[in-house]
Amino acid sequence: MGFKLLSKLLVYLTASIMAIASPLAFSVDSSGEYPTVSEIPVGEVRLYQIADGVWSHIATQSFDGAVYPSNGLIVRDGDELLLIDTAWGAKNTAALLAEIEKQIGLPVTRAVSTHFHDDRVGGVDVLRAAGVATYASPSTRRLAEVEGNEIPTHSLEGLSSSGDAVRFGPVELFYPGAAHSTDNLIVYVPSASVLYGGCAIYELSRTSAGNVADADLAEWPTSIERIQQHYPEAQFVIPGHGLPGGLDLLKHTTNVVKAHTNRSVVE
């Protein structure tokens, strides 16, 4: 069995187990497998329904001669939608809004960016022009300005110390501490036991640490421990890039980060 097929099978099995364990909360999309990078042309966006009122959005972007996937989250909030992270750029984010209108038909009224990198804030200006209120932590807003990236308009308070959590509509926002970046936030959907790890969490097929220019490698494993301790009931975990899975993604990420750190020390 090929690795790609095995990865998709694991996603399907995880979703099936969740649907059985929580039949009222989960209505997993039966329309197909989780979209992969090879299936999404740059400039297009796919939506994948995880649970009743919960979707991931998947886009792709060219970077350094390669094409990478990027995940975000959409959560229903009454007759409105909360968006977590842009679709990595203005063109993708405009396509995301169009796809949401086509498939869901509810307005996106608020959006949260989970850290300051372009795959999370690139497209904020498109959201703002569409009347979406954009939010991020003060740290993310400051770092985005320093980096020359787009800056969300509103500040999220109460997320300055490791372990801080605040309720934001249908989700809980959690600051686990520094990891992929010093400002990275985690998003949890309690009604569906869905954990969105953003770039602080890796997919299972990833074996290298990737972009760690703004990471705190020493603190990252401790931050992941905080996530595990705060959300032990999480059933569906979405990484910032690639295929979702279960809580095993947290341990896998820790292993990859520690291996990278150990290699760096040896070198």
Rank of each mutant, 00 (worst) to 15 (best):
Met1Asn: 05
Met1Tyr: 07
Met1Glu: 05
Phe3Asn: 14
Lys4Asn: 14
Leu5Thr: 15
Leu6Glu: 15
Leu6Asn: 15
Ser7Tyr: 14
Lys8Trp: 15
Lys8Cys: 15
Lys8Ile: 10
Lys8Met: 13
Leu10Asn: 15
Leu10Ala: 12
Leu10Gly: 13
Val11Cys: 15
Tyr12Asp: 14
Ala15Asp: 08
Ser16Val: 14
Ser16Tyr: 15
Ser16His: 15
Ser16Met: 06
Ile17Leu: 11
Ala19Gly: 11
Ile20Arg: 07
Ala21Ile: 15
Ala21Gln: 14
Ser22Glu: 14
Ser22Met: 14
Pro23Ser: 10
Ala25Thr: 12
Ala25Leu: 13
Phe26Ile: 12
Ser27Thr: 11
Ser27Cys: 13
Ser27Ala: 15
Val28Met: 15
Val28Ser: 12
Asp29Glu: 10
Ser30Glu: 12
Ser31Gly: 10
Glu33Gly: 11
Glu33Pro: 09
Tyr34His: 09
Pro35Gln: 09
Pro35Ala: 10
Thr36Phe: 10
Glu39Met: 12
Ile40Phe: 14
Ile40Glu: 07
Pro41Asp: 13
Val42Met: 07
Val42Gly: 14
Gly43Trp: 04
Gly43Met: 05
Glu44Ser: 13
Leu47Val: 13
Tyr48Thr: 14
Tyr48Met: 15
Gln49Lys: 12
Gln49Pro: 14
Gln49Thr: 10
Gln49Gly: 12
Gln49Trp: 10
Ile50Ala: 05
Asp52Gln: 09
Asp52Glu: 12
Gly53Glu: 10
Gly53Lys: 09
Val54Arg: 03
Val54His: 02
Trp55Arg: 03
Ser56Lys: 07
Ser56Ala: 15
Ser56Tyr: 15
His57Val: 03
His57Tyr: 07
Ile58Ala: 06
Ala59Tyr: 05
Ala59Thr: 09
Ala59Gly: 15
Thr60Lys: 08
Thr60Tyr: 10
Thr60Pro: 04
Gln61Arg: 15
Ser62Leu: 05
Ser62Thr: 07
Asp64Gly: 15
Gly65Ile: 06
Gly65Pro: 05
Gly65Lys: 09
Ala66Arg: 12
Ala66Gln: 15
Ala66Phe: 15
Ala66Val: 14
Val67Arg: 15
Val67Cys: 06
Val67His: 15
Tyr68Phe: 15
Tyr68Arg: 03
Tyr68Gly: 04
Pro69Cys: 05
Pro69Leu: 15
Pro69Asn: 15
Ser70Gly: 03
Asn71His: 02
Gly72Ser: 04
Leu73Trp: 01
Leu73Glu: 02
Ile74Phe: 05
Ile74Glu: 03
Arg76Val: 11
Arg76Glu: 10
Arg76Pro: 04
Asp77Phe: 06
Gly78Val: 09
Gly78Asp: 14
Gly78Pro: 05
Asp79Asn: 11
Glu80Lys: 08
Leu81Met: 08
Leu81Cys: 03
Leu83Gln: 00
Ile84Val: 10
Ile84Phe: 12
Asp85Lys: 00
Thr86Ser: 01
Thr86Ile: 06
Ala87Pro: 00
Trp88Pro: 00
Trp88His: 00
Trp88Lys: 00
Gly89Ser: 05
Lys91Leu: 14
Lys91Asp: 15
Asn92Ser: 06
Asn92Ile: 02
Asn92Gly: 07
Asn92Tyr: 03
Ala94Glu: 14
Ala94Arg: 14
Ala94Pro: 03
Ala95Gly: 09
Ala95Glu: 09
Glu99Trp: 07
Ile100Thr: 07
Ile100Leu: 08
Glu101Leu: 08
Lys102Val: 13
Gln103Ser: 14
Gln103Ile: 12
Ile104Ala: 00
Gly105Leu: 07
Gly105Tyr: 09
Gly105Cys: 06
Gly105Asp: 10
Leu106Gln: 11
Pro107Thr: 13
Pro107Ser: 12
Val108Thr: 06
Arg110Cys: 06
Arg110Ile: 10
Arg110Ala: 14
Val112Glu: 05
Thr114Ile: 00
Thr114Val: 00
Phe116Asn: 03
His117Tyr: 02
Val121Leu: 06
Gly122Arg: 07
Gly123Glu: 04
Val124Leu: 09
Asp125Leu: 07
Leu127Arg: 02
Leu127Ser: 01
Arg128Tyr: 11
Arg128Leu: 10
Arg128Glu: 11
Ala129Phe: 08
Ala129Pro: 03
Ala130Asp: 07
Gly131Phe: 00
Gly131Pro: 05
Val132Trp: 01
Ala133Gly: 10
Ala133Glu: 13
Thr134Asn: 02
Ala136Lys: 04
Ala136His: 05
Ser137Gln: 08
Ser137Pro: 07
Ser137Tyr: 05
Ser137Arg: 07
Ser137Thr: 12
Pro138Trp: 08
Thr140Ser: 07
Arg141Leu: 10
Arg141Ser: 05
Arg141His: 07
Arg142Pro: 03
Arg142Ile: 13
Leu143Asn: 08
Ala144Arg: 09
Glu147Arg: 14
Glu147Asn: 15
Gly148His: 11
Gly148Trp: 05
Gly148Asp: 08
Asn149Ser: 12
Asn149Ile: 07
Ile151Leu: 08
Ile151Glu: 03
Pro152Ala: 03
Pro152Asp: 01
Thr153Val: 13
Thr153Ala: 11
Ser155Ile: 13
Leu156Cys: 03
Glu157Val: 12
Glu157Met: 12
Glu157Asn: 14
Leu159Val: 11
Leu159Ser: 04
Leu159Glu: 02
Ser160Trp: 10
Ser161Lys: 13
Ser161Gln: 14
Ser161Cys: 07
Ser161Glu: 14
Ser162Trp: 09
Gly163Val: 05
Ala165Pro: 09
Ala165Gln: 13
Ala165Asn: 11
Ala165Trp: 13
Ala165Thr: 13
Ala165Gly: 12
Val166Met: 12
Val166Arg: 10
Phe168Thr: 02
Phe168Trp: 09
Gly169Glu: 05
Gly169Arg: 05
Gly169Pro: 07
Val171Ser: 01
Glu172Arg: 02
Leu173Ile: 14
Leu173Pro: 08
Leu173Arg: 03
Phe174Lys: 01
Tyr175Gln: 01
Tyr175Trp: 04
Pro176His: 03
Pro176Val: 01
Gly177Trp: 03
Gly177Cys: 04
Ala178Asp: 05
Ala178Lys: 13
Ala178Cys: 04
Ala179Ser: 06
Ala179Thr: 07
Ser181His: 01
Ser181Ala: 06
Thr182Ile: 11
Thr182Gln: 13
Asp183Leu: 02
Asn184Pro: 01
Asn184Ile: 05
Leu185Gln: 01
Leu185Ile: 12
Leu185Val: 10
Tyr188Thr: 01
Val189Tyr: 02
Val189Arg: 01
Val189Asp: 02
Ser191Thr: 13
Ala192His: 09
Ala192Lys: 10
Ser193Arg: 14
Ser193His: 11
Val194Asn: 01
Tyr196Ile: 02
Gly197Phe: 01
Gly197Asp: 04
Gly198His: 02
Ala200Asn: 01
Ala200Leu: 11
Ile201Cys: 00
Ile201Asp: 05
Tyr202Glu: 05
Tyr202Trp: 06
Glu203Ser: 04
Glu203Trp: 01
Leu204Trp: 09
Ser205Val: 08
Ser205Pro: 08
Thr207Tyr: 10
Thr207Cys: 06
Ser208Cys: 06
Ala209Gly: 06
Asn211Lys: 04
Asn211Arg: 03
Val212Asn: 07
Ala213Val: 14
Asp214Ser: 08
Asp214Asn: 08
Asp214Gly: 07
Ala215Glu: 03
Ala215Cys: 05
Ala215Asp: 04
Asp216Tyr: 05
Asp216Thr: 08
Asp216Ile: 08
Ala218Asn: 12
Glu219Pro: 04
Trp220Leu: 03
Trp220Val: 02
Pro221Gln: 08
Pro221Tyr: 06
Pro221Asn: 08
Thr222Glu: 12
Ile224Gly: 02
Glu225Ser: 11
Glu225Leu: 12
Glu225Lys: 12
Arg226Phe: 01
Arg226Trp: 07
Ile227Lys: 02
Gln228Met: 14
Gln228Pro: 07
Gln229Lys: 14
Gln229Arg: 13
His230Pro: 06
Tyr231Asn: 08
Pro232Lys: 14
Pro232His: 08
Pro232Trp: 07
Glu233Gln: 12
Glu233Thr: 11
Glu233Lys: 14
Glu233Pro: 04
Glu233Phe: 11
Gln235Cys: 06
Phe236Gln: 11
Phe236Trp: 12
Phe236Gly: 03
Val237Phe: 05
Val237Gly: 03
Ile238Pro: 03
Gly240Phe: 05
Gly240Pro: 05
Gly240His: 07
His241Asn: 03
His241Pro: 04
Gly242Asn: 04
Leu243Thr: 13
Pro244Val: 07
Gly245Phe: 02
Gly246Asn: 13
Leu249Gln: 02
Lys251Ile: 14
His252Lys: 05
His252Pro: 05
His252Met: 04
His252Arg: 03
His252Trp: 03
Thr253Phe: 03
Thr254Lys: 12
Thr254Leu: 15
Asn255Arg: 13
Asn255Ala: 13
Val256Ser: 04
Val256Ile: 14
Val256Gly: 02
Val256His: 04
Val257Asn: 06
Ala259Ser: 13
His260Asn: 10
Thr261Ile: 11
Thr261Cys: 07
Asn262Met: 12
Val266Tyr: 15
Val266Gly: 14
Glu267Asn: 09
Glu267Gln: 12
